[in-house]
Nucleic acid binder design. Sequence first.
DNA 1: AGGCTTGAGTTCCTTCAGGGAACCCCGAGT
DNA 2: ACTCGGGGTTCCCTGAAGGAACTCAAGCCT
Lengths: 153, 153
Amino acid sequence: MQRTSFSGMACSIARTLDVIGEPWSPLILRDVWAGMTRFEQLQTDLGISRKVLTERLNHLVAQGVLERRPYDQRPRYEYVLTRKGAELVDLLMVMKGWGDRWLAGEAGPPVLYRHHACGEIADVALRCDRCGEPMHAGDVDLLPGPGVANPAT
Amino acid sequence: MQRTSFSGMACSIARTLDVIGEPWSPLILRDVWAGMTRFEQLQTDLGISRKVLTERLNHLVAQGVLERRPYDQRPRYEYVLTRKGAELVDLLMVMKGWGDRWLAGEAGPPVLYRHHACGEIADVALRCDRCGEPMHAGDVDLLPGPGVANPAT
DNA sequence: AGGCTTGAGTTCCTTCAGGGAACCCCGAGT
DNA sequence: ACTCGGGGTTCCCTGAAGGAACTCAAGCCT
């Protein structure tokens, strides 16, 4: 948790950061998405401190992004993405795209996506959900919405 | 900067986090995008410590995401998005979408986007850049790419 | 000419979160 | 009875975030 909590701000970006803005949280989500669902797996793969991993997992579960569930009679648990969490992974896909374009260098992308619908190696593109045209940072105006200055319920 | 640097990992998500993963960095980008380009504006709008703001701005400039440039004869500077930075804002648009859907509650979104191309209030949607169909976390397989296990150049 | 103001930082101190390693608990197998 | 292995908890230490005060360089005011 960063020192200052962002959740009081009337901004969906700040609120989202309160859910996954802490260090390691996005990487934990990435790993769970990729099938590394258990504590020990996550800890060894990430090299994260066990203490911090516990904190992050608890927070992500509390936020409804992950679900903790037993997979054995013994006290063994795995973490799985909820629907809310799966939609967050979309965000990670966009991050991967940016990193591939700007940081991967000569070596190229470390990971590729194959899209089920077309079978091609592909990346995500951002489009307008009304007209279907490309939609980027420079293509929009910002307007105040209904939730401005109202605390989220 | 988080204690552990992610930049050594062969993962575009981790590398991207090394650029904007620190607390405040995404909000700084949001503000610059929205037209708050000066040190004092950022500091008072965010309520961030001046020390940390300095560190973040320097880091973002060093990463090529922001550009620092004088706007007066006096030693006055403003920060503007580079092309690399503008593409990062796409990421923020996706974050906003998720926050609107899952965290805004009854009050609704604090901010709306109007898309220049169609003039409608709209949000971003993720689509495949090959076939144009929707592309989400569950719609892809992960494959090793050329940059796997190669340090980025 | 001397002082005031403003933007853009620096310095310093305190507190709290992250790293790391050791420790603990519990149910199963042998 | 003892060990093993997953899933944590406890402890101490360091370093980053908060916060307030201080600095510096141009203009502006009178």
